[in-house]
Amino acid sequence: MSPKQIVFALALGIALAAGTFVAIRSQAPVAPVSALVLPAPNPVPEFSLLDQQGEMVDQSVFEGQWDLVFFGFTHCPDICPTTLQVLATAKSALVEDGRESLPRIVLVSVDPERDTPEILGQYIDYFGVGNLGLTGTLEEIRKLTDGLGIFFEKQDGDGENYVVDHSAAVLVIDPDGGFHSLFSGPHIVDNYVHDLPILMGGR
């Protein structure tokens, strides 16, 4: 091989390597398509609620894993199960993609009158194992929702036949217990599958 051929081969090699690098970089996910990331995580406010086993938990329950937190109620036949199913389906898709680190799904009841820990447990177990349900007194739920900017309001109804208006957002809590980002909806599986690895890998 002549010196010219060596230089040419080297140049070709470098060009190929650079091209591959650019191609990989351009395919890499860079920004969420749906989630809004807060400039800095906000610590979850202090609260004291019951999990689905009836155990008292506080804000530290959000530490140690990523959480997808939805605020709803088990008498809601439409948007609550639909949203939770989107989250469960997105988690399954992430498993199929080979991801080992998965977020936990959390349902905070905005209807503690009807949502006992037992009822909440039956409900969230339907959407997979390892999910967390939180309920308790209205006052303690308000501490959590007010601190996170979540709205809910019980509407007038006939006895037990009432509905609760509530924020439709899904909040992402980081493993330090900080409110990290949110999906405001509409909730679409592909958006979660795209964004969650970016959110969870971005720190």
Binding site: I79, D165, S167, A168, P186
Partner: peptide, 14 residues
């Protein structure tokens, strides 16, 4: 017969 609406981030069912 119900309708769910989401307005300004709030889900309402009526």
């Amino acid at each position: 017969i119900h309708e769910t609406t989401v307005t300004e981030g709030i889900s309402r069912m009526r």
